[in-house]
Design a protein around this nucleic acid. Structure first.
Lengths: 194, 194, 194, 194
DNA sequence: AATGAATGAGAGTTCATTCAT
DNA sequence: AATGAATGAACTCTCATTCAT
């Protein structure tokens, strides 16, 4: 890796992300993060003033990864389908993200700084989904009778729930079952007679 | 309070439950629990050998509260509806439970002892829901075309997701939206033309 | 065991003696002593006001066991021989006493109360040995050229040293070698040409 | 004090050695050691991971001090005499060592790690003494009729016994009497008519 | 005579943070 | 830009002792 200006910072954030995924906030130690990043604990504090600062950087990183699953073009149905598929793949390929997002969801309840960041992403996600459903229903590519707000909320709930490590990491078959059922409920797959 | 045999133990568990809800495992301190219970830290260790033992008692308590929402009689549709209503009420009235269940879901990923307890409840929940859907479809009181396994998984995911404190505690309107949408998807409400 | 007035006290002292032998003062816990004696910790404190009081009783017990090896009649040589044989047998049969005496010797350096008790027995031992050597030399049954004070001191040193658990418990062959050599040096065995 | 690389470590070991001598394992507190060394308790744990690690360093130190009394050249009689004189001087000048060695002898009975270290030194000591006696008898500079194994064992026992703090620290006159008698028994002094 | 429950003081250890170099 | 050394505060857990019953 060439020496980019922020190589050290990135290494720290990466290590903290991995540590957070493996041990949770409860077991997140700056010393371990520094060791994983191959630096001294004092060096970590040279790049980040406090542990909280490291955490904020990790949060930003996690939000970025999640946001990448939100598609930007195509018909509403295509976008919804694309989003679900990207998310399903992400959860399967990067279980660490499941843990980190779960930890953040819980910490947001106690930490306004994190609540702000997570809340913003959450709201954007909700608006996006609602918009897609609205336009999907209007355009006829989604079934009628769908209340966009309710669908967006229920969809987000299901996606958050399936991302919990108890499900995503320990019971991958339920991950698929959930995603399949969500696509069916949304009318994204042609219903075959069974 | 009259002197029941386990009054002290119960007080400790109650205090630990509240502390866990408010500060997470990350901020759970035996001294604070003892203080909240109005006792000395040594007294806490007289009743519970270790912090882990306290936690186990809290887990049992949380599982009991959740299990109480599983209904035991009625038609499948009635049981499903009853379960959802009981859960919706519980989450609204006891936000602490949301946090505790979330913490447990995350800790289960790292702590086999908790994973075992949580996993057992989880499996029982899944079997129960799947059974209800099966019988509901067979009896005609639920729409056809429902794969019991998929529905159970998706339903559980949505319920877990909606219980996350970011949703249940901070956005109660989405809690209702989600529950309404779930009832609609399950065909538990008569679809009115809109 | 019939209910003698001090049965409980004796059981406590016995348990404390065994615990002291096995774990030293460092690992002597009143709770364990009480448990071994089959009673509650509070009951122990009913019979002995403090831990120190228990220890004093153990010390007395140990001193009594040691003093029983000092013979009371016979010629000086017989008494010396008898003392050495009794002590050799005691150390071999009751390794616990080795540890307890060693612990007391060390604690005496810090604890005046124990120093007083141990010192008294020590001085009595020294006077006894010195007297035996004096009379033995005078009576001709011990070799001449022996300074009673020096012999008594050297003899006690050797006996204390051989009683240390590192020797008595872990290297029983050196115990015999030492006792044999001491008898030879004192002229208590006929020197055979070798 | 100039800043040698291990100055802090040495200061800690020194303080622990002194504390152990004064209060025994029973009263050895890391906080006191740190205070005596003029550092924070956390600093102690920066240099030594655990209390046990500090103890190991103290043991090594004590063994080194003792081993320095074993002479390396001269006739067997000279070496024996030299060893006894060096030991006599050491015990008189450094009473702390008496206590520490006594504590170690007792702890060895319970702690395999210490037993290994102490046992090794002990065996080396025994082999050395036995060799000296063997060669002394063969060369005629020690009296005949001496069984090297027995003499070595008895000598070690006497030296250990005389080093016990009850003797060495509280009754220095008996220390001299013992050493004088040992030299006489070994035939290291010319027997004068008395 | 005996005990379950309680406690103050203190044990070893850990952690985020700081500072001189 | 980096680090070895240091620290205050806090952690879980232990222990001899007490007290109401």
């Amino acid at each position: 890796m060439i020496d980019r200006p922020h190589a050290r910072r990135d290494a720290i954030v990466l290590a903290a992300y991995a540590r957070l995924a493996e041990h949770g906030f409860e077991g997140l130690r700056t010393r371990d993060v520094a060791a994983d990043a191959g630096i001294n604990i004092a060096t970590l504090h040279y790049h980040f003033q406090t542990k909280e600062a490291v955490i904020r950087a990790v949060v930003a990183q996690a939000m970025r990864k999640f946001a990448a699953t939100l598609p930007r073009h195509g018909t509403p149905a295509e976008q919804l389908r694309g989003h679900l598929r990207a998310l399903r793949a992400l959860l399967r390929e990067e279980p660490a993200l499941c843990v980190v997002l779960g930890e953040l969801a819980l910490r947001a309840a106690r930490d306004p700084a994190i609540a702000a960041i997570v809340g913003e992403t959450d709201d954007f996600w909700h608006r996006t989904l609602r918009g897609l459903v609205e336009r999907g229903v209007a355009g006829g590519c989604l079934g009628p009778h769908l209340d966009p707000d309710q669908v967006a909320s229920a969809l987000m709930a299901a996606l958050k729930g399936v991302a919990l490590p108890t499900v995503a990491v320990r019971q991958p078959e339920r991950l698929d079952q959930t995603f399949d059922q969500l696509e069916r409920w949304l009318g994204l797959v042609e219903e075959e007679p069974r």
